[in-house]
């Protein structure tokens, strides 16, 4: 295939990919630049691109005014917590569906995924009421639970596709070789499933990290993660573009760094294992 594509077409596709990437990336780049501008330069017309006086003032102010590290801590606790809890529930579920499917397995999977098609606001009222009644509002536990639940269908679906890829022959070989069910799981299945589980884990941490709707709605002060940190710089105090940008940069930096270091696993995860 690759060889059949002519050089000119390859160039055209590369250019196209770059253009698309730039368009997608532009808002982030702009926020990055704005975060180093003064509030005045930030709203200057015509906008200044690179040649302005760079300043760290916004970062200083944001760090002074709000407790960034508490938000960061909350984000880490809820993203990692909900991902781990999700995996604990999803691994056995996906496992069962992949290795001993019944006639209804496909339906169950579809039904689980279909819950993701409902707009979140649709269940806003019942969820907030449940949270209030159970005293979960503005708690880590509440946030972990809700993040787990909204991402569970995706976790199960991803794990299911990974487990499905494990050849049955190999499991049968282990059975022939005298492995008990426990040994089969420990020595054969798990090592083969770990790359898939790792990809799912990474992707889900990102999804949970970026979830803003529920995290803003269900927290007020104590359990607020980073999306709420950004939001704090938009409405209540009027629009301060430069500070808002600085806050956004600080909110996405950790996840961006994590994503950078785990690119390979992540791409595999996002393409559901299609890239080998």
């Amino acid at each position: 295939m690759a060889r059949a594509v002519s050089t000119r077409r390859k160039l055209a596709f590369t250019a196209l990919a770059w253009i698309v990437a730039l368009v997608v990336f532009f808002p982030i780049l702009w926020a990055f630049l704005t975060s180093f501008k003064t509030e005045g330069t930030a709203i200057a017309a015509p906008p200044k691109f690179l040649f302005f006086e760079w300043t760290l003032e916004n970062y200083r102010t944001v760090l002074e005014r709000s407790n960034y590290f508490r938000f960061l801590g909350n984000s880490i606790i809820t993203a990692v917590g909900s991902t781990l809890l999700g995996l604990v529930v999803a691994i056995p579920a996906a496992w069962a569906m992949a290795f001993s499917p019944t006639r209804r397995t496909k339906d169950v999977l579809m039904w689980m995924l279909s819950t993701k098609m409902l707009p979140a606001v649709g269940v806003l009222v019942p969820i907030t009421m449940l949270f209030r009644m159970m005293g979960l509002t503005d708690t880590h536990l509440g946030l972990v639970l809700v993040l787990t639940l909204i991402n569970l269908p995706i976790i199960v679906w991803m794990l299911f596709t990974y487990f499905k890829e494990i050849p049955v022959d190999i499991l049968e070989a282990a059975r022939m070789d005298g492995a008990s069910l426990r040994q089969e799981v420990i020595y054969v299945l798990t090592p083969m499933a770990i790359p898939g589980i790792a990809s799912t884990l990474l992707l889900n941490i990102i999804l949970a990290w970026n979830e803003s709707f529920w995290t803003i709605v269900l927290t007020t002060t104590q359990a607020t993660p980073l999306p709420a940190f950004i939001a704090a710089y938009s409405s209540p105090e009027g629009l301060f573009w430069a500070k808002l940008s600085a806050a956004s940069m600080m909110a996405i930096a950790p996840i961006l760094i994590m994503g950078w270091f785990s690119q390979k696993q992540l791409v595999r995860g996002l393409t559901f294992g299609a890239v080998k």
Partner: peptide
């Protein structure tokens, strides 16, 4: 097995 079914890891 026809597919050898070796443990890849």
């Amino acid at each position: 097995f026809q597919s050898y079914a070796l443990y890849p890891h």
